[in-house]
């Protein structure tokens, strides 16, 4: 066997082995995906990601807590006084500056994810130095717009995606 044909044969051989190896790697990674993906939210969980809340019975000053995606959601029917409180603030001085208008679709109704942005506790309503919410875990104070005013939390309470389906129904998610 000449040297040339020998090296040619060798390269074909290694090509086959490389192709086999590549197939094997593809097979292993393709098998891996279902094993990872099964931990993602399942179809029944995803279907519950959108809820409708009836707010017709919510009187002024009252608030309601509903469960959305496993987290509490605060819906507060704010009084005029509370709305004014939320607006009479020098936004620039806040730890997380945001205007009250940016945080509501209808100033009367404030919709918040009731999870403290510090470490995930649930703040208590109508408590704290700013008459909004107070997180008992590490003492974060939120105002009537759900903005952080004092304490270790870095951000304002989160606003979930929502729309007013009609005057009495909010569609969340």
């Amino acid at each position: 066997m000449s040297k040339k044909s020998k090296s040619k044969k060798k390269s074909r051989r290694s090509f086959i082995h490389q192709a086999s190896g590549a197939m094997g790697i593809v097979a292993v990674s393709a098998a891996g995906w279902p094993l990872v993906d099964q931990m993602n939210p399942s179809k029944d969980v995803e279907a519950l990601a959108t809820i409708e809340v009836d707010i017709s019975s919510l009187g002024e000053g009252e608030s309601k807590t509903v469960l959305w995606r496993g987290k509490p959601l605060f819906i507060k029917h704010r009084s005029q006084e509370e709305i004014d409180d939320a607006n009479n603030v020098n936004v620039k001085d806040l730890p997380d500056p945001e205007n009250d208008e940016e945080r509501v679709k209808n100033p009367k109704y404030l919709v918040l994810v009731g999870v403290c942005t510090h470490l995930g506790c649930v703040p208590a309503s109508d408590k704290g130095e700013y008459k909004g919410w107070f997180c008992p875990c590490h003492g974060s104070h939120y105002d009537t717009s759900g903005r952080i005013r004092k304490g270790p939390a870095p951000k304002n309470l989160e606003i979930p995606p929502y729309t007013f389906k009609d005057e009495r129904t909010i569609l969340i998610g």
Partner: peptide
């Protein structure tokens, strides 16, 4: 893959 493995 089976064919490739066989050739290998």
């Amino acid at each position: 893959m089976t064919i490739l493995f066989y050739i290998s």
